[in-house]
Each structure stands twice: as structure tokens, then as C-alpha cells.
Write a protein that binds this DNA or RNA. Structure first.
Lengths: 168, 168
DNA sequence: TTCAGTGCAAACGTTTTGCACACAT
DNA sequence: ATGTGTGCAAAACGTTTGCACTGAA
């Protein structure tokens, strides 16, 4: 494979931190970076990465994903059909994500959760973290829906889209 | 097995809606109800239910769990170590959960998420739902931690406890 | 030279499904 | 009588791991 030139090394640092950046890992990280603004599963990432380098094994992608997550290069969004969804996330500050249930588009959302939420028996609890994902339709898919056109390729899955936006 | 008396039928309605309530399903629903205030996996539910009726198959528990979730008798909280966590949830109104990462205690929390959160590229999005889980320590486990005693049986798992409460 | 990363294949744990049978309706 | 629920076992699924090897440091 082509020698890893210094520019690539910088990118590898960003994606993998202290971990070593092989040619395969660079390909995987670039593929994830190219998917910015769109959620992807490990399987999908592997498929895309293999378009560049067909020799990449699935285990390698799983290991690279774990390393990129540890380095903060990508984030877990949740699960869909039993598989974990990730997104490339350049933002380092605390925030959450809005996921389009029709096309997997992802957008950053400011955190609306107060440090100590109220209600019920949560009073004695000490909150250390939280996880929030918003579901809905992105601008394009919302427009499609308005036009009464069936949404495009629909990766929608009931399991992870709780219908609970405006109800009491 | 014992005939299903009318009182049990009422309970079955609550747990399974239109679905049929067999003796096994009633045992499973009662077990889930007894675990109120504590999150459980399907495997754990099966183990507890089998203490009452050893003949209950795992597949039956999975099918009962799906039915109870469809009827709104239990709710998915998230995943831990690849397995889905559920909790019995009597409240029918929209709310979220606080999960103790040390002992699996669960408490209801009022929803702090506005209908249309702001920030980033989420402007074109139409929100249809969201999912929020808070992580932390319940009163008892927090007290343990204060006493510098290692928390009890620790079902904690890194994967689902994003450390992100107060950070910018 | 050393040790992290790789590919393959096998293993793992959770969840689903096909089947014949039992039972609630 | 009808069709849903049951138990078992096998399969499917995403994911992890052991191994010998390659290649980055």
C-alpha cells in the first residue's frame, strides 16, 4: 500500500488519538468523515470503506470504530434493528443529535436537559450523565411527506422511534 | 395449571391489551410488575418468572415482553451489554427515566425537552419523538459512594453511560 | 525490534423463528 | 372450532475474540 505521508498522520491522530494509524484505519476514518451529517452502522461503514479498499475485514472495522469512538472522532447515536448507529461528530462540546427517521440525516442539537431534572422519585438521585436522541424528519424528507409522496428509501424502524414529542 | 379467574383476566388486559393472557403470561406480567422501580433484562425477567413456574421457555418470555411493550405495560430503557433493558411503568403520560448505574433502580423524570429544540442544523427538522435516559446514582448507592465504599453488585457498563451531565 | 493493527474464522450472547401441540376465546 | 400462545431447538444476527502474520513506530 502507499506510504503514509505526514498529512495522513495528522488525520490519523485526530481519528485515533494515540492509536496507530494504518492505511486501513485511515481509509475507514476518511469514510466516516465523508459520512458527516449522516448516521451509519458498522456494517454500512465497512461496505463504504471496502469500496476504497476491498481487503478490509469486518473485525478491523469494528476495532477501528471502537478506537474512533474512544478518541471522540465518532459518537454512538443509539441502535437500529439491533445494530449500533454512529455519526461522525466534529463538535467536542456537549450536545445531542436529531436523527431523520427517513434518510438517517443527523444534526447537532443543543442540550435542553438541566443538570438536575425534577419530577417523581428522582429526588435522591445524583445525575452523572444522560443520553438524548431526537427523532423526526429532516427538511427534505419533511417536504416529501408534505407532498404526500412516500418517503424515499426508508430505514425507519419502530423500535427506536418512540412517538413522544408533544404529548402531555 | 390453575384456571384463570376473572381478577387475573383484568390484570392480563392491562398487561397484554387485546392479546390473550395465559397462565405463563400472567406469571411473567406479575413478575415484571413486582420489579417496579427496577430495570431488568429479558433474561433476568425469565429467571424471576421461572422461580414461579420453571416450565416457562425463554422464547415465551421474549414474546410476552414484546406484547407487554406493545400494550404499554413496560417500556424500553436502553441497552446494557448488548441486551435490552426494560422497566415496568405504570405512568401512561409522557416522561423519561433516571437509571441508577449501580443497582438498576429506576425513577420517573418529567420531560425537560421542548417541542422544537434549537441549535445547529436542526432548523429544518420536524421533531416527531425523542428518547432520553438519565444516568447516575440513586440515594442509597450515592450514599455508599460517599462513604468511599465500593458500590455493591455493579451492573455498570461504560457503553451506555455517557459521562455528560454538566460539561459545556 | 517491538508491539499494535490486520484478516480470517470461530465463538459468543441476544433475539427470532419453525414446528407441533395446548389452551384461551 | 378457531387461532393465539407455548416449548423446544435451531437459526439468525451483530459483535467479539484467538490466532498467526504484517507493518508502523
Amino acid at each position: 500500500m502507499a506510504a503514509v505521508e505526514p498529512r495522513a498522520r495528522d488525520f490519523g491522530r485526530i481519528a485515533y488519538g494515540a492509536g496507530r494509524a494504518s492505511a486501513q484505519r485511515l481509509t475507514i476514518a476518511r469514510t466516516a468523515d465523508a459520512a458527516r451529517g449522516r448516521a451509519f452502522s458498522v456494517e454500512e461503514l465497512a461496505t463504504s470503506a471496502r469500496a476504497q479498499d476491498p481487503g478490509i475485514g469486518l473485525a478491523t472495522v469494528y476495532r477501528a470504530v471502537a478506537a474512533m469512538e474512544a478518541a471522540g472522532f465518532i459518537e454512538q447515536l443509539g441502535t437500529r434493528d439491533g445494530a449500533v448507529l454512529y455519526a461522525r461528530c466534529p463538535s467536542t462540546s456537549h450536545h445531542h443529535h436529531m436523527l431523520c427517521t427517513a434518510c438517517n440525516a443527523v444534526a447537532d442539537v443543543a442540550c435542553p436537559v438541566p443538570e438536575q431534572p425534577s419530577g417523581g422519585g428522582a429526588d435522591g438521585f445524583r445525575v452523572t450523565g444522560h443520553r438524548l436522541v431526537l427523532y423526526g424528519l429532516c427538511g427534505a424528507c419533511g417536504a416529501d411527506a408534505d407532498a404526500l409522496v412516500p418517503t424515499r428509501e426508508s430505514p425507519r424502524s419502530e423500535s427506536d422511534c418512540c412517538g413522544s414529542a408533544g404529548d402531555a
